[in-house]
């Protein structure tokens, strides 16, 4: 990158709003709104998971249902390396170890499965979640003879700031991928894999690398969240909903830009939060499903796509009025 080529005006325009939002978020714990800290932690979890999911699946069109697997790797990393009793690594070290482990698993799984297309890839990635669940469940109960593990508890503020940090890293990574030639390559793969390969793109390498990077980010969320749940076992760590939610949130919000997935994540996780506190958890799947079907049928570009369309039409109407 040539520094003199950077358009500072453009850059400040792009970054001004995000920086203000970030500052407002960073000051959250000082508002004296305790529920806000845990609510926004909840938002951040799903924003990070959804944006990381879109990073790979949104661009390439390969629907990954492995999110819960990487999230679960994060949870188990915390359970093993940051336990309530005994030797415990600092949280930041656990995050790095977990990200590396997830990266490695995703790299291997990706190298094997990213030759699969469409539904087969989705099924295989979901299979990874079930496989990890079974293996860890077996090791814990049948070999080690225990059900779950206790994780060292962290304060709500600590959890919040970790999530905020991971959020920033996720955004930087996304921005970086989008603005380098690898983002272009990833998009070209989503458009036409054959043409990309015949234009010199090492399709397999690009796919596997970005898949692994997104997996690493997903797992870090798991690490942090484990310190909130205190007690973890295989079934809480590898919860299939963690695979479906990010995909559905992204589809609902729209994937044309970064705001779509974030908005989708906030809305859905808020609905989930309300239903949970109202003890209406069972309705969540029902509402979730209905909204999703409506989205696919009536707003294929997602919520942000719909808003964009309305906005364009409004602008068009205004122009027509001033002209006429």
């Amino acid at each position: 990158m040539n520094l003199s080529n950077i358009n500072w005006k453009q850059l400040s325009k792009t970054f001004a709003a995000p920086l203000v939002i970030l500052l407002a978020l960073a000051l959250m714990p000082f508002y004296g709104w305790e529920y806000g800290v845990s609510l926004f932690s909840h938002f951040l979890i799903y924003i990070i998971l959804t944006v990381s999911w879109v990073m790979f699946s949104g661009a390439t069109g390969y629907i990954s249902l492995a999110t819960a697997a990487f999230y679960g790797i994060g949870i188990y990393s915390a359970a093993l390396l940051h336990p309530a009793t005994g030797f415990s690594l600092p949280l930041i070290a656990v995050i790095i170890v977990s990200a590396a482990a997830s990266f490695l698993v995703a790299f291997i799984v990706g190298a094997i499965t990213l030759r699969l297309k469409g539904i087969y890839f989705a099924m295989f990635t979901f299979g990874l979640v079930l496989l990890l669940f079974q293996v860890i469940n077996y090791v814990e109960t049948s070999i080690l003879g225990q059900r779950g593990r206790f994780v060292a508890l962290e304060s709500n503020e600590t959890i919040y700031y970790y999530l905020l940090g991971i959020f920033v890293v996720t955004m930087i990574v996304t921005f970086f991928i989008k603005n380098t030639k690898y983002g272009l390559a990833l998009r070209s793969i989503g458009e036409n894999e054959d043409a990309a390969a015949h234009s010199g793109v090492n399709v397999t390498m690009v796919k596997v690398l970005i898949f692994a990077v997104s997996a690493a980010l997903m797992s870090t969320v798991g690490v942090v969240m484990a310190t909130k749940t205190i007690y973890v076992d295989a079934s809480t760590a590898f919860n299939p909903m963690m695979s479906f939610s990010p995909a559905l949130m992204a589809i609902f919000g729209g994937m044309a830009n970064l705001y779509g997935p974030a908005v989708g994540a906030v809305i859905f996780s808020y609905v989930q939060e309300i239903l949970q506190t109202g003890n209406l958890n069972n309705y969540y799947m029902l509402i979730f499903g209905s909204i999703l079907i409506a989205t696919i049928l009536y707003m294929p570009q997602g919520l942000m796509g719909l808003i964009q369309n309305l906005w364009n039409r409004l602008k068009g109407a205004k122009r027509a009025l001033t002209r006429g």
């Binding site: 030639k181 272009l184 390559a185 998009r187 070209s188 458009e191 036409n192 054959d194 043409a195 990309a196 015949h198 234009s199 010199g200 793109v201 090492n202």
Partner: peptide, 26 residues
């Protein structure tokens, strides 16, 4: 390098980016 009988372009990308891919990677 080659072209395809049934065109295989990057449909949702602008024409410039279609060409840029070849330049950056090929």
């Amino acid at each position: 390098a080659r072209t395809f009988q049934t065109v295989k372009i990057f449909g949702n990308m602008p024409v410039v980016d279609n060409v840029k891919i070849g330049l950056l990677f090929g």
